[in-house]
Amino acid sequence: MSFLKITGLSARLKGTAFPILRDVSLEVAAGEVHGLVGESGAGKSMIGKAVLGILPASVEITRGAIELDGMDLLSLPPAERRRRIGATAALIPQDPLTALNPSRRIGPQVTDRLVDILGWPRARAETRARELLAEVHIPDPERVMRSYPHELSGGMRQRILIASAFAAEPKLIVADEPTTALDVTVQKQILKLIAEMQARHGTALLFVTHDLGVVSKVCQSLSVLYGGKVMEATTVRDFFRQPAHGYSRALLAATPKYTDPAASLTPVPDAVIAAVQAEIAAHDRSLRHG
């Protein structure tokens, strides 16, 4: 029984025919970590945003369905949808420096969802926040909760955002390139932390990244995207052993090997790109005629 089920989701730039997502389908089981990979502009972030209901105003969904924990999200009235998403899902954002409100203290930013949306008593929410901050290895949670974001380092802030994402025990977390904006040294710690928290809480995770190395470490399954279309959806083991799609193979070849990081990189060859684009064009035609 999959916890998140997206079927035939298509989206375009509002008022134009420019496609953002093309007939995307994917399933994430409860407790599963699913990677969304692709180059920038492939639409991987847009899927996460569509699930959380935070697509930019310029993007409109044209077809398809998003089912979260058995709820058909797109058929719910907006206010209801927002509340449901807030109660069952959470986001670990990309840039910890801009994702915390600079004029609010950390404490309320971690507890606000618990108090306002889930109706917890404030004291209980604060206790929970302290526990969570300790859980993400923040020393002196009491002091940090009274601090403003600018008083904390980027790594600290990302830990806080992770704690905040897990606060309401969501069943699904969308992690949108959660390490891209961080120092390389901090990246590893944060990645480890996310994996650790995911395992402990049994949360399903939609992990958006362009880094196949990260995928191989945290994910169980993945979808490869190009031009808003899913090229291949498979398990991580199969993907790294025998990628089925030509684009997947090219992408793998373009990724540095852990065994030999110094080996020269092969960019995705033009021929592969051309083949992929032809495939997408054929798919678009079949959609129009079918």
């Binding site: 134009t16 105003a57 310029s58």
Partner: peptide
């Protein structure tokens, strides 16, 4: 991303 309704407006 530029809001499309913005261009109209």
């Amino acid at each position: 991303m530029a809001s499309n309704s913005g261009t109209d407006g």
